[in-house]
Nucleic acid binder design. Sequence first.
DNA 1: TATAATAATGATAATCATTACTGATAGTGA
DNA 2: TCACTATCAGTAATGATTATCATTATTATA
Lengths: 126, 126
Amino acid sequence: MAIERKSKQRDAIINELCSRFDHPTAMDLYLSVREIIPNISLGTLYRNLTQLEENGMVLRIPDGSTDRFDGNVNPHAHFKCTTCGNVYDLMNFNINSLTFSDEIINKVTNYSLMAFGLCKNCNKIN
Amino acid sequence: MAIERKSKQRDAIINELCSRFDHPTAMDLYLSVREIIPNISLGTLYRNLTQLEENGMVLRIPDGSTDRFDGNVNPHAHFKCTTCGNVYDLMNFNINSLTFSDEIINKVTNYSLMAFGLCKNCNKIN
DNA sequence: TATAATAATGATAATCATTACTGATAGTGA
DNA sequence: TCACTATCAGTAATGATTATCATTATTATA
């Protein structure tokens, strides 16, 4: 589904998503964007996230429960702390070095790498 | 939630999951296990999958849509063809070589890598 | 600038995957 | 064998996401 017209709702969504780095869920985004457009619909949010993803402007991060979204579409890895649930970008991980040579693959267009473990914040607390 | 007693339902689930390599969804498994235990409940299936996952006997593979499951709990990468939807094991990808050095990380205990793209079967057809 | 075509919206209903609940059943230690 | 209770089947409830539809707003063109 191509993007054919601009809308202030979509602008607000992509703007919000690109200005934060905490990998929000759809509901997180909904609550934030409502500060700008109070009567925006949750359906509009989901519709636009799907559309933006299809057009390569947004990354969907599956993590086993509710999907998260990322405005940074450069391929990069993520780390999820299984204690606090936060998802962080992995800056020092060079995902470009990955090669896929398996027999079944014709072409790899994207990938999602999620590491799980304990973050330093949670380690201090416990 | 620890496993405290054995049950033929759980045995059938883990047996089915370990004898196939197509990364079935919960519903796929439900339909298969019903061939063995016709009146098994979908709730029992989900309860046991969660329990088996918590006990490290099953891997949950999030891929952005319905979760898939894997009886092979050795860390390994996956490839999903975005045309046919099939998920394959990546045998030639050495995930053990990955290193995580980011500032926020205290400890990495597990990771999941899903590559997306086009498989050779779908490339032939289209 | 006005108009026509239709993409996009808000509101809400529907769907789908998953989880929670409840009374019945069955595995296990004494 | 008995008592305890984990586990079960069946089903209701939940939560996330998608679909529908009448209305609104964007945009190309007259």
